[in-house]
Design a protein around this nucleic acid. Structure first.
Length: 511
DNA sequence: AAGGCCCTCAACCGCACAGCA
DNA sequence: ATGCTGTGCGGTTGAGGGCCT
């Protein structure tokens, strides 16, 4: 093997070329490291080296192989292109679904996402995601399909994610409580880690959730941003704890759910007596006259490059490359319509921005939907605890769900307002508005609310997705739901909310 | 046909962490 | 405890190709 590789003409030629380079470079006493695209000869050398010495110790590659590349470059080349187990070619729809969901839960944890997608590299995923973001942003569409929002929230309600926060995370409660931002620490103690959390989530959610909590959730919520992020250049590593100003912004809304109202096809209802869900006090801001759908505070297709400069995103709904049709729109607005593909879901959701979205230089790319949902869940509990009564902010936020096409058959959804909040929406009532108790599911199937089994099987994410005959993984609402994590269960069952659980979690308005 | 624009993707850069001396 | 080295991660950049005008 080794002898053959040494005789490989490509390797020999490359080494000769490198020796020439060395001779030239050594004139000045320094051998400049090569940059730029790799040649096939260099690849051959690197492959040869790895075959002999294995992966790792990349800085030694230069010494031992004569390759004039820095160790990092070698590692990257190997990991992203030369590794034998790499899967080439475009992402499959399933993989794309995976990425969306993973990003919703992890944020920009490309390496972790790559770990869940065998044969794919973090770079690949990152590029894919950024491309996707761009495309959606052009179309003024939100990043995550509404299914993701709701499924994640449900997952949290089930304790599948929140429980991880108490294990191994690095957030510092003291730091967490700075800047008027108080995070209750007791909420997660009763949650079970074994309730169907996918293998990856156990190790991932903690970081995602905590990083969310560390990375400017306040600005996220306060300014209508959907995802807590920081300016890319300023963003700390995970271990760092940074809060942007949170004054007066916590609990103003849950843009994740705001998104649910923002389908061009959806029935946008009046926020009876409500102002902006993200900003109950409109006088606080100099609200621009966005030419958007009423009540639109969708998940922002943010762009890190635009973080520092407010951008007036297209006021018209520009169709992305993957354009949607009327029928697709109907699929969101009409329960009986088949669920759209994830791709079409992406293009279906409009996300007109608000001025505040960019005002603090945050990027929605940087953290996952889960972060937002987790935060909101905690925040809701906290606000309930601290104030002794539900805050109008929360109510307003969830009130946005009211008219969501996710709740296409509005008449079938329980809508009831209580008097516990100025807006007439308690947290529980608001969630019951988006939580079917009985009636039609999103895809028109009948459903019942049932308790979920606790003894769900933990399986690797990738395997879970492959599980045949148990989960229709091509259905976004299934893919993005709890059923996705627990293919041993009936997906139909798992995609349902447990109204009581949700309501209870949101503040215990239920008797 | 030519130029400009946009998109994709490979690669680089800076930072942070872990392990070790 | 401190500094160094290796490695990994995430953000950004730039080359190349395709599309449009």
């Amino acid at each position: 093997m080794i002898a053959r590789s040494v005789r490989d003409p490509r390797v020999v030629t490359a080494r000769l070329q490198l020796m020439k380079l060395m001779m030239v470079g050594m004139v000045g006493g320094m051998i400049p490291l090569k940059k730029g695209p790799w040649t096939s000869a260099e690849d051959a050398i690197l492959i040869d080296y790895v075959k002999k010495h294995g992966e790792g110790n990349w800085n030694a590659v230069q010494k031992h192989s004569g390759l004039f590349r820095c160790g990092k470059s070698c590692r990257l080349r190997w990991a992203n292109h030369l590794r034998p187990d790499l899967k080439k070619g475009a992402f499959t729809p399933e993989e794309e679904n995976c990425i969306v969901e993973l990003h919703a839960m992890m944020g920009n944890k490309w390496a972790r996402m790559a770990a869940e997608l065998p044969g794919r590299t973090d770079n690949e995923i990152k590029n894919y995601w950024n491309t996707r973001i761009k495309r959606l942003q052009r179309a003024s569409l939100p990043i995550y399909p509404p299914d993701v929002c709701l499924r994640l929230y449900k997952t949290i309600q089930d304790g599948q994610i929140m429980g991880t926060l108490q294990t191994g995370d690095t957030y510092d409660p003291e730091l967490m409580q700075t800047d008027h931002f108080k995070i209750p620490e007791v909420e997660f103690k009763n949650l079970e880690l074994s309730r169907g959390v996918p293998s990856y989530s156990l190790g991932l959610f903690d970081t995602s959730a905590s990083s969310m909590l560390k990375q400017g959730v306040g600005s996220f919520y306060g300014n209508g941003l959907v995802f807590p992020t920081m300016h890319p250049a300023k963003r700390p590593r995970e271990s760092q704890t940074i809060f942007t100003g949170l004054d007066g912004i916590v609990g103003r809304g849950l843009p994740v759910f705001d998104q649910l109202t923002d389908y061009p096809c959806g029935k946008i209802i009046e926020h009876s007596g409500l102002s902006s869900p993200c900003d109950p006090d409109l006088s606080t801001y100099d609200q621009p006259s966005w030419d958007v759908l009423p009540g639109s505070h969708a998940i922002l297709n943010d762009n890190s490059s635009s973080a520092s400069a407010p951008i007036c995103v297209a006021k018209k709904l520009e169709l992305p490359s993957l354009q949607y049709s009327e029928s697709h729109q109907d699929s969101w607005g009409t329960p009986a319509s088949p669920l759209p593909s994830l791709e079409s879901v992406d293009t279906l959701i409009q996300s007109p921005p608000t001025k505040e979205m960019w005002s603090d230089g945050q990027s929605s790319r940087s953290s996952g939907l889960l972060d937002a949902v987790l935060y909101e869940s905690r925040n809701l509990k906290n606000s309930k605890k601290c104030s002794g009564h539900p805050t109008s902010d929360v109510s307003v936020a969830f009130g946005e769900i009211h008219g969501s096409p996710l709740n296409p058959s509005e008449t079938e959804w329980e809508v009831h307002a209580d008097l516990k909040s100025p807006s007439g929406h308690s947290t529980s009532s608001l969630f019951s508005e988006c939580t079917p108790v009985s009636g039609s599911s999103l895809d028109g199937r009948a459903y019942n609310v049932r308790p979920e089994p606790v003894d769900q099987v933990l399986i690797p994410y990738a395997e879970a997705r492959k599980a045949p005959n148990q989960t229709d993984c091509n259905k976004p609402d299934v893919l993005l739901g709890t059923a996705w994590f627990t293919p041993s269960n009936n997906c139909q069952k798992d995609q349902f909310f447990q109204t009581d659980d949700v309501a209870a979690d949101l503040g215990g308005d239920q008797p």
